[in-house]
């Protein structure tokens, strides 16, 4: 019936002469090269560890302070997870409200964009003033930093349903509520996942900034404490832990994306090839 030629075209392609090096190997190789150059430069030019520690010094510090760093990482991770969850809920709610209550949404939208232009980092001391040194100000800071990409991406997803499909739904008597629930929300999920990936990295930044402004634990606190002690290797060790933490969180969200929206347009090419 409609078996048009793609198979013939695929089989006509000559077998790959050599397999290309996987991206992952290239990335790790490049990283190793940068670390190697860094180490050599420190030794060659005799740079003081107070200014810039060699990678080996950072690793030594990582091992020496492992218990402390693990405790701090745990504290930061709790802030990141809680902040991210509340930021996501806030962002999703804002997007749904804007779409569902159109008039109110039009009034709300410029306000949100205006708020986005406030430097959030500057809010940290105010939140500390209001809520003290505990978890609450950090979570609030993460929410104000990270809800925006969630709201904007979710909104874009909700609004990008094809008008002709909406017309089709309306023609058989479906109301806005039903269209929202059965078409707009599922349609927006790939967009939402993109927003969540931005939000999770913002959440890590938010947690560190919150800890800078005033905290008694967490990786941000360790960094600040180490800088007062001129313990630069420990600063770098904490930075390594922050990066690994951020990377891990990012991939958790990426994994969730693969599981929740395998039909997302970005996977389409791979699906076709399969």
């Amino acid at each position: 019936m409609s078996q048009i030629v793609p198979d013939a075209a695929a089989s006509a392609r000559p077998p790959a002469a050599r397999r290309p090096v996987p991206d992952m190997v290239l990335a790790l190789g490049l990283m190793a090269a940068v670390i190697l150059v860094w180490e050599l430069a420190i030794r060659l030019f005799n740079v003081s560890p107070f200014v810039l520690p060699a990678p080996t010094a950072v690793i030594r510090s990582l091992i020496a302070s492992r218990a402390r760093l693990a405790g701090a990482a745990q504290a930061t991770a709790i802030e990141v997870v809680l902040g991210f969850v509340f930021a996501s809920i806030t962002g999703i709610t804002v997007a749904l409200v804007i779409v569902r209550f159109e008039r109110f949404g039009r009034a709300l939208y410029p306000l949100i964009v205006l708020f986005q232009n406030v430097p959030k980092v500057a809010l940290a001391p105010i939140f500390i003033l209001w809520f003290g040194f505990d978890l609450a100000p950090k979570i609030l800071l993460i929410v104000v930093i990270a809800f925006f990409p969630v709201a904007i991406d979710m909104l874009a997803g909700l609004q990008s349903v094809e008008p002709s499909f909406v017309a089709l739904m309306q023609s058989v008597g479906a109301g806005q509520g039903k269209i929202l629930l059965r078409v707009r929300i599922p349609h927006s999920l790939p967009h939402l996942m993109a927003g969540l990936k931005v939000a999770i990295t913002f959440s890590v930044i938010g947690a560190i900034v919150g800890e800078f402004a005033g905290a008694s634990q967490g990786l941000g606190y360790v960094i600040q404490f180490a800088s007062t002690q001129l313990d630069t290797p420990l600063i770098f060790a904490a930075l390594v832990v922050v990066s690994v933490l951020g990377l891990a969180f990012y991939y958790v969200v990426e994994l969730a994306e693969r599981l929740l929206v395998p039909w997302a347009p970005k996977y389409e090419i791979r699906q076709r090839a399969a």
């Binding site: 002709s164 499909f165 017309a167 023609s171 599922p186 039909w263 997302a264 347009p265």
Partner: peptide, 13 residues
Amino acid sequence: IGLVFQDATLLPW
């Protein structure tokens, strides 16, 4: 009435 448009507008999920 049944409607068909230029784009199939199928739900990808």
